[in-house]
Each structure stands twice: as C-alpha cells, then as structure tokens.
C-alpha cells in the first residue's frame, strides 16, 4: 500500500450514480416529437442550434430536466452530456429539479420592488406557508423570486409556470388566483391596453383577446428589500 494518503476532496462530490426519475422506456420521443425535432434541426446551420427548443420540448413532456432527460436531449442532437448539461444549467427557466404543479414567478426586480413586488411575494409566502424557492407540501405551488419579466408598466406582476402573465397584483387578486389555480383554472392571456389607445381608439385594439386590462397607477412599496 502506498504511504501517500490520497486526499479526500474537501467538497463532497454529488452522487455520481443517482437514482433515476425516468426509466429507459419513458425516455423516448414519440414519432410526432421526432418529426418536430427534425424540422427544428433544419432551421439551424448546425443541428446543435436546436438544443434550446429540444430542452423546452423535454420540459413540457417530462415536467423538469433531471440528468437522464438532459442526456436524452443531447443524444438526440449528437451532443455530449457535458455540453447539454452546460446549456440546461445556464438558463433560469429550465427546471433542473421537480417543481410544484404551478410555478409562481413573482417579479421583484426594481420596478416591481418600488411598486410593491416584495409585498406581494411576502403575502404569497405567508399564504402558502413557504419561502421563495420552496414548494408547498401538497406539491401544488412553487414560489420563486424572479428578475425583471418585462412588464414594468403593470407592476407588481407574476408569471405562472413559464407561461401566462398576471398583471397588477393585489392581495385580493392573489387570493382569487390561488383559489382558481387550486381548481385547475389557469388564467388566460391578458392584453394590457396602451394609454394612447384608450384616448384615441376608445379601448383595446385587439378584438381577438377576451381579457383586457388598462395600465393603472402603480402602488407604492410597503417593504423594500
């Protein structure tokens, strides 16, 4: 035996062979999905360009992206696992672990901050009894603090599971929202009318959208963090 003691890594390495969440039978694309992926590959000079779209597809299909799903996506496009894993972990919106049925991204970036984004976040945390970043015990909701979601005129606002925007939040609105989400009803797309359209066109310019709202005076933040 060598007298040179092998130093153990100071930081414990992650489990190199973790238990898998999906079996090999589950990790296959349907014919339809395969066709869709091939169409995406055509759009880019190098098929690797399609990886972000494939990861999105996988997230829709599996709900989140554990290592074996990321590996599947990479193999589909002839990419190594490390490359694919690198891409998947670079972007906020790819879920690397299982989340609640509804992911509530509350914007707290500075416009929302000064207009009560943290008040909304804290109200939600208290109501669901979780901290930002955690999932409720029933697996229904994950509350997250988000960076600017590009809807500063209707602050404070949130996004539900990388999808629909809910504008101009108030505690009452949150109550209604949580109730309807519990009943399985996700709010529909809402078009926010431009102030000039209100003046010049008497309201929203879009006739194909049922839900419309107008920009309102923004609240003042009670708490700023």
């Amino acid at each position: 035996m060598s007298t040179f003691g092998i130093q153990q890594p100071i930081v414990e390495l992650p489990d190199q062979d973790p238990e898998r969440d999906f079996s090999d039978e589950e990790l296959v694309w349907t014919e339809e999905e395969q066709e869709q992926i091939e169409a995406w590959e055509e759009q880019y000079a190098d098929e690797q360009g399609a990886i972000m779209k494939v990861l999105w597809l996988a997230q829709e299909k599996f709900g989140y992206l554990p290592p074996e799903v990321i590996k599947l996506c990479g193999e589909t496009l002839d990419m190594s696992f490390s490359q694919t894993y690198g891409v998947a972990t670079f972007y906020h919106q790819y879920f690397k672990e299982e989340k609640g049925s509804y992911v509530l991204d509350v914007c707290t970036c500075f416009t929302c901050q000064v207009c009560g984004g943290y008040d909304i976040l804290h109200y939600l945390e208290e109501k669901l009894d979780v901290h930002a970043g955690e999932t409720t015990d029933d697996g229904m909701f994950t509350v997250q603090e988000a960076e600017c979601l590009g809807s500063c005129g209707s602050a404070p606002m949130m996004e539900i599971t990388n999808g629909v925007y809910v504008h101009q939040l108030t505690p009452e609105k949150i109550d209604d929202l949580i109730e309807s989400l519990r009943a399985g009803e996700v709010p529909e797309f809402t078009s926010v009318t431009l102030p000039q359209d209100e003046d010049e066109m008497d309201g929203n310019r879009r006739t194909d959208v049922e839900n419309t709202t107008t920009y309102e005076t923004q609240p003042r933040a009670e708490h700023m963090e």
Binding site: C152, G153, Q196, Y215
Partner: peptide
Amino acid sequence: SGHIKRPGVY
C-alpha cells in the same frame, strides 16, 4: 413605469 399616474408605453 414607477410612481406616476398613468404608466404604459407611449
């Protein structure tokens, strides 16, 4: 945006 009466895109 911010502390104004009518926010929005103009």
